[in-house]
Computed example of a mutant assay.
Amino acid sequence: MQIKIVLAIKIFCIQALTLLFSCQVSAEKLASPIPNSAFELVVLGEAGGIQDGNLSAFLLRALSEPNYIALDAGTLVNGINLALSNNAFKELPVKIDNTLSPAGNILHHHIKGYLISHGHLDHVAGLLIASPDDNNKPIYALKSVNQIISDSYFNWQAWPNFTNRGISPRLNKYQIIDLVPQQAINLKGTQLTVSAFSLSHSIESTAFVIEYQNNIFVYFGDTGPDEVEKEGKLATVWQYLAKQMQTKKLRGIVIEVSFNNQQADELLFGHLTPKWLMSELSYFYSLVEKKQKIEDMQVIISHIKYSLKSGLDPRDIIQNELQLENTLGFNFKLAKQGQRIIL
């Protein structure tokens, strides 16, 4: 009997030590999952229309924490489910809530807010559709963008008002926060800060410069090239980033290329082509003092327009055109729905 008790105690101690070691390893893994990296990006949606299950939406987190900020929300729950099926959250210490599905756990416990670049439906549809079953969190946007969201969607006609602004009754699920251009604020529930920059589009759009310690990531909403738009807004972003890169590391950017080079300038409607993107990046390259800092920066291409026409895939055409234009050695990657990217 005594032997059995001693043996049981030994087994219990081994199990306890194993569990303790496992927790320590998990904590260390969360603190520094991959050497020389800072961010995780999960692609919930990457197309610029018209495929309704795959519209602009990304999740970003610092690798030191389990909390994301959503970068636009054209596709939300469908994108989360696809990312789950692709094991994009495999390194995430998921909060266990047995009352929720895996997608519900991500939405409720790991997405701490939304950064909305502009009010076009392909950038907000997922947020609207998910809102009845979402939990309380902030929506961050420039003032004009928040106004469009209130006037056009959360107005009790297109959709109930789940926000704390606008037409009564206000359901107060989402706290609307106006971003002041080029003024950094902390993103609640995360270790990230954001500075918003106005962009030229058919309506006001936004670039979000997101920082964690000495690391930077930039998400560009829809935008046209400065030479076509005549407002110089992209130049302002490039100048800011070049200055920040003197002391910080720019890990990557997400930027749109909606059309191939055959699209006429007068039919861009506030979008980029490979030719115009390279024109913008060439200007940025000229500003950066230490050119080697460009080499490790990932340029993730989004918002490629889905086509119903037969023939070559627009993604293939744009990828080829980017490579032909890429004389400066930028590290291009076409975003793919459901993938996980480490930066």
Results as ranks from 00 to 15, higher is better:
44 L>W: 02
44 L>D: 02
44 L>M: 00
45 G>F: 11
45 G>I: 01
47 A>E: 09
47 A>V: 06
47 A>S: 15
48 G>C: 08
48 G>K: 09
48 G>Y: 03
49 G>D: 03
49 G>T: 10
49 G>E: 00
49 G>C: 02
50 I>R: 13
50 I>M: 13
50 I>F: 15
50 I>E: 14
51 Q>E: 14
51 Q>A: 07
51 Q>I: 03
51 Q>D: 15
51 Q>V: 01
52 D>G: 01
52 D>I: 00
52 D>A: 06
53 G>I: 04
53 G>H: 08
54 N>H: 11
54 N>E: 07
55 L>Q: 08
55 L>S: 08
55 L>C: 02
56 S>A: 10
56 S>T: 02
56 S>I: 00
57 A>D: 05
57 A>C: 04
57 A>G: 07
57 A>Q: 06
57 A>Y: 11
57 A>P: 01
58 F>P: 09
58 F>R: 01
58 F>D: 03
58 F>H: 03
58 F>G: 00
58 F>S: 03
58 F>C: 09
58 F>V: 07
58 F>W: 03
59 L>W: 02
59 L>T: 00
59 L>F: 05
60 L>Q: 07
60 L>F: 01
61 R>P: 04
61 R>W: 00
61 R>I: 07
62 A>F: 07
62 A>W: 09
62 A>R: 09
62 A>H: 09
62 A>V: 08
63 L>Q: 01
63 L>G: 05
63 L>Y: 08
64 S>F: 02
64 S>A: 12
64 S>W: 08
65 E>Y: 02
65 E>H: 14
65 E>S: 13
66 P>V: 13
66 P>L: 06
66 P>H: 05
66 P>E: 10
66 P>F: 06
66 P>W: 04
67 N>Q: 13
67 N>L: 08
67 N>F: 13
67 N>Y: 15
68 Y>V: 03
68 Y>N: 12
68 Y>C: 11
68 Y>G: 09
69 I>H: 09
69 I>L: 06
70 A>I: 14
71 L>H: 09
72 D>R: 03
72 D>A: 00
72 D>C: 12
72 D>M: 12
73 A>Y: 02
73 A>F: 10
73 A>M: 10
73 A>D: 01
73 A>E: 06
74 G>E: 10
74 G>D: 03
74 G>V: 01
76 L>A: 06
76 L>M: 01
76 L>S: 07
76 L>I: 02
76 L>E: 06
77 V>C: 01
78 N>R: 04
78 N>G: 14
78 N>P: 07
80 I>N: 04
80 I>S: 00
81 N>D: 09
82 L>I: 14
83 A>G: 11
84 L>I: 15
84 L>W: 01
84 L>E: 02
84 L>Q: 02
85 S>N: 15
85 S>R: 14
86 N>I: 15
86 N>L: 15
87 N>P: 00
87 N>Y: 12
87 N>T: 14
88 A>C: 10
88 A>V: 07
88 A>D: 11
88 A>H: 11
89 F>K: 06
89 F>W: 04
90 K>H: 10
90 K>Y: 12
90 K>A: 15
91 E>I: 14
91 E>P: 03
92 L>R: 05
92 L>A: 09
92 L>M: 04
